[in-house]
Design a protein around this nucleic acid. Structure first.
Length: 554
RNA sequence: GCGCCCAUGGCUCAGCUGGAUAGAGCGCCAGACUACGAAUCUGGAUGUCGCAAGUUCGAAUCUUGCUGGGCGCACCA
């Protein structure tokens, strides 16, 4: 719809140029948007204002010229006015809107999909928590944001893979094995002083107990190094399995779990560093190897091989991103906690040294979550093992409410997550407001069926009966849906979907309270059923992208 | 000290990449079920968009400075 207006304007502009009314200048992409003041019509454009400067003419004069040259072959424009300093205000014919509904029921579950991604391969990497403990509330937001970003990209035609990077090669894994060993000994009667670096959560005890159950006390006497290695593996696998379960129940599944260890096979990291050194991106100061990230705008150069000969996390990360691009992705998206923002220039430097453009790697920052219970902060301490796990949140507030709440703000803004509010089934909780709209429609449709009213198809409906302002508002909102999805995908901003849903549910509820869908008037009933079915389709599609259920009844 | 992010009604936040009179929700006040689901709806009040300059036809949005908050500034991950 919007595209048609854009195209009309572009053609009018060209013919102005052809006729010599306007100079031959590049047409900046004209913006056509839905004005927030309905008096300004259905669509508005600032094309004349944008052209005023390069064309060196009065914007209103340009507007007049373009207006005279608009050739509305499809006959969709009702009125076209020039207002204010030179805005175009378009009002479309009612039947244009009414007929636009057809595409919604035709496309059904596919309504809102587009092909702007054109099959390009994209990878979204997110969560990527170390398998040293269960996922907690802090991971949950990143998990949902990543999942929905991926979903949006899929809807817009990208070929998307969701990937989880398992940091299982660093020394935190060693600490994990040690922690289990300490608990193991403790359970078998030893008195243990726990060092700061150890993980103290209950889950460590469970793993230790499990080992005792299955293997007894034989590790008390075995070689400590080997035992720690072994416990690492056991604990890592067990925790990762639990993480996968939690994520699955949260509605998040991955296509690929990529182990950091993979990067070190065949000396992969070392060889890559040697190559980069040959190319001049890495230099040695005798004891350590430095990556020249300042060449790409970083504040200071960064160490890749430590004095002790161990590669840094950054070194592995360069190799990891090289690996990603080698797998043929056109675009790679990392979802990070906002506390890692200082790391961005470093990684961008890394991929540029590998020959990729900075734009090939997009990084979405997700702010940390402020966990509250009834307004009071909930203490979170990872070290002591006191934290609210994702599992607990799922059990307490449920998947739908949890996911929706994490999507109610831009991801780079702080989010208060109140457990009491999130589980309250009231109007403080927008997820129910939206779901209720869907359930309500289902209920009306069910009643219609029970009364023997058939659900009409497009051709069986007199669309012109949908003539009320509220009906037109709903139709416009529904027509806008694909553009909203496209915009959200392009900007990597899932929160736009929740805002859209709240608004759509709002105008529907309002409409419902004012008008009877099912009435004595058969033709009107058919038209309205057709309309609310369209609303249902869009509610369902949008909720599905968010991974939130669209219940038939509540 | 340096860098990044943020500052919008009493509270929590949007504001579609520079557009027309800045919007929601919550809370508050007053109303609506013998009507397809009241988890709903209708009406009402609240703003120097942190402060000050600048850019232009036009700024909450872009630039600079200041104030106030968050986060980073590892040979941790």
């Amino acid at each position: 719809m919007k595209n048609k207006i854009v195209s009309l304007l572009q053609k009018a502009f060209s013919s102005c140029v052809r006729k010599g009314i306007l100079p031959e200048i590049e047409l900046p992409s004209p913006e056509v948007e839905v004005p927030n003041n309905p008096e300004h019509g259905d669509y508005a454009s600032n094309i004349a204002l944008i052209l005023a400067k390069p064309a060196r003419q009065n914007p209103r004069k340009i507007a007049e010229a373009i207006k005279d040259n608009i050739n509305d072959t499809e006959n969709i424009i009702e009125t076209m006015e020039i207002a204010g300093p030179g805005f175009f205000n378009f009002r479309l014919k009612d039947n244009v809107w009414q007929n636009a509904l057809q595409i919604i029921s035709e496309q059904g579950k596919d309504y809102g999909c587009s092909a702007v991604g054109a099959g390009k391969k994209v990878q979204v990497e997110f969560v990527s928590a170390n398998p040293t403990g269960p996922l907690h509330i802090g991971h949950a937001r990143g998990a949902v944001v990543g999942d929905v970003v991926a979903g949006l990209l899929q809807k817009t035609g990208y070929d998307v893979d969701r990937e989880y990077y398992i940091n299982d090669a660093g020394n935190q894994m060693n600490n994990l094995g040690k922690s289990v060993l300490f608990r193991y000994r403790e359970k078998l009667g030893e008195k243990i002083e726990f060092p700061e670096t150890c993980y103290r959560g209950e889950y460590i005890k469970d793993i230790a107990a499990d080992i005792i159950n299955k293997k007894g006390n034989k590790y008390l006497t075995q070689n400590e190094e080997e035992t720690i290695q072994y416990f690492n593996t056991i604990a890592g696998e067990s925790i990762l399995a639990e993480i996968k379960d939690d994520l699955r129940d949260f509605g998040v599944t991955f296509d690929v779990y990529f182990s950091e260890k993979e990067l070190y096979k065949n000396d992969g990291v070392t060889k890559l560093l040697q190559k980069l050194q040959k190319e001049g991106f890495i230099y040695s100061d005798g004891a350590t190897l430095w990556f020249k990230t300042t060449a790409f705008g970083d504040e200071k150069d960064r160490v890749v091989i430590r004095k002790n000969g161990e590669p840094t996390y950054f070194a592995a990360d360069i190799a990891y991103h090289k690996n990603k691009f080698e797998r043929g992705y056109d675009m790679v998206i990392d979802i990070w906690g906002a506390d890692h923002h200082g790391y961005m220039p470093r990684l961008w430097a890394g991929i540029q040294a590998l020959g990729h453009s900075r734009e090939a790697l997009k990084i979405v920052l997700v702010q940390l979550v402020n966990l509250l219970r009834a307004g009071e902060p909930v203490a979170m301490s990872t070290r002591s093992g006191e934290f609210v796990t994702l599992r607990e949140v799922l059990d307490e507030v449920g998947r739908d409410a949890a996911r929706y709440n994490f999507l109610m703000r831009r991801s780079d803004s702080h989010l208060d997550f109140d457990l009491e509010v999130a589980k309250r089934q009231s109007n403080e909780n927008p997820v129910y407001y939206v779901q209720y709209a869907h359930a309500r429609i289902c209920s009306i449709l069910k009643m219609a069926r029970e009364r023997g009213i058939s659900l009409p198809g497009f051709s069986a409906v007199d669309r012109s009966l949908l003539s009320q302002p509220e009906e037109k508002a709903i139709i416009k909102m529904l027509v806008m849906y694909p553009a909203m999805i496209e915009g959200a995908a392009k900007a990597l901003e899932p929160h736009r979907v929740t805002f859209y849903l709240n608004e759509l549910a709002g105008i529907f509820h309002s409409y419902y309270n004012k008008n009877k869908v099912i009435s004595e008037d058969a033709a009107l009933t058919a038209a309205r059923i057709y309309l609310i079915e369209s609303v249902k389709i869009v509610l369902f599609n949008a909720l599905t992208i968010l991974g939130v259920s669209a219940p038939d009844k509540m």
